[in-house]
Design a protein around this nucleic acid. Structure first.
Lengths: 187, 187
DNA sequence: ACGATAGCAGACAGATCTGTCTACCATCAA
DNA sequence: TTGATGGTAGACAGATCTGTCTGCTATCGT
């Protein structure tokens, strides 16, 4: 099996195009052409375009969550250091070529509340917040919920700005501010 | 003239629908039907849909900038108080019915860098940041640029989250965090 | 009175989008 | 050998989208 399976190629192409151009802007015909797959094969794996969108979001979730965890762990075993270190994922991301912010935030802007894609986004953001809250509690923050809210606010701000310009200075500033907030909350 | 002019009605409808459903999701035919206007009239005022999109963004800019300035001024004449007070605009906005975050952030998610709509968004965010930086300088911040960056990051985070759920607690947390940052930066 | 301006109503063209369907091909296991 | 599986190629239907064009009407300043 020299090439990836059809399903993988479709998902790969979708990830690239949905992220770069937006979901509505990418038609099924283009996905088919770019992934070198027959139309029947496409609809066999993903009965509707929306199913592919959800699979795409699940992939984004997996990737971004992985990067956040990795950045946090790279900062050491101290929870308070991890709370700051996770912001390195933002810096790394916005230095990557083709960076265009958060796939979830962008997808949410194209969907309306109540749709599966929107729900997926809300759930993702909540999982991240809960993870941060756990770290905040471990770090001994007086108000873990509040600290988690501020830090994720800062993170989402950085991600939202990433859709406009991939300025690493923004990520640096986010990290610096996070450090200040963590120190203040765990003093 | 009992009713508003055709142009105003179109722009009014576009503002409502573009914001609520997204730009690509709203077709010209719907805009025409909802604003009770003839197709020829529509294209007379806005030769292309993109022209209407830009007019919409200019309206969003005007509205949001006005709300920010009003909230800041309502906090008194002290620049440091204004830096915190401007976050009340976020709280007020997310309590409004149909709130769905920042029209600019949402529009940027649907456009790609280099397009007029995207440029408009970048310019808007820069204007806001410069205004905040001015206030930060007046407030005697040691690093006005840095403070402005953190505060706008926080603000954009709140706005981005607004597209997911209009939770006033988010706005309150943003304001609280802003207060902490302003105090720390002007101490 | 009359022409300019602004607007209404809607057919039409051409592109594009999602999704279905037919027909054919290759591989591999029973 | 044969049948199941997974794939390719592409025509087709039906909806929807942007934008053009023709005709008709109402108002208002001169």
């Amino acid at each position: 099996m020299p090439t990836a399976s059809a399903r993988d190629r479709i998902l790969e192409t979708a990830t690239r195009l949905f992220y770069a151009r937006g979901i509505r802007a990418v038609g099924v015909d283009l996905l088919i052409a770019e992934s070198g797959v027959a139309k029947a094969t496409f609809y066999k794996h993903f009965p509707a375009k929306d199913d592919l969108v959800l699979a795409y979001l699940d992939r984004v979730d997996e990737a971004w969550t992985g990067q956040l965890h990795a950045a946090a762990e790279a900062a050491g075993s101290e929870p308070s250091a991890q709370l700051v270190g996770l912001f390195d994922a933002l810096g790394t991301a916005c230095r990557r070529d083709g960076y265009r912010g958060c796939g979830f935030i962008n997808a949410a802007a194209e969907s309306t509340p109540g749709t599966p894609a929107h729900d997926r986004t809300v759930a993702h953001k909540q999982r991240v917040r809960e993870w941060v809250e756990g770290l905040a509690a471990e770090a001994g923050a007086a108000d873990p919920t509040g600290l988690a809210r501020s830090l994720t606010l800062l993170l989402d701000g950085g991600l939202a700005r990433g859709a406009l310009d991939a300025d690493p200075a923004v990520a640096d500033e986010a990290r610096r501010t996070a450090s200040l907030l963590v120190t203040a909350a765990t003093a």
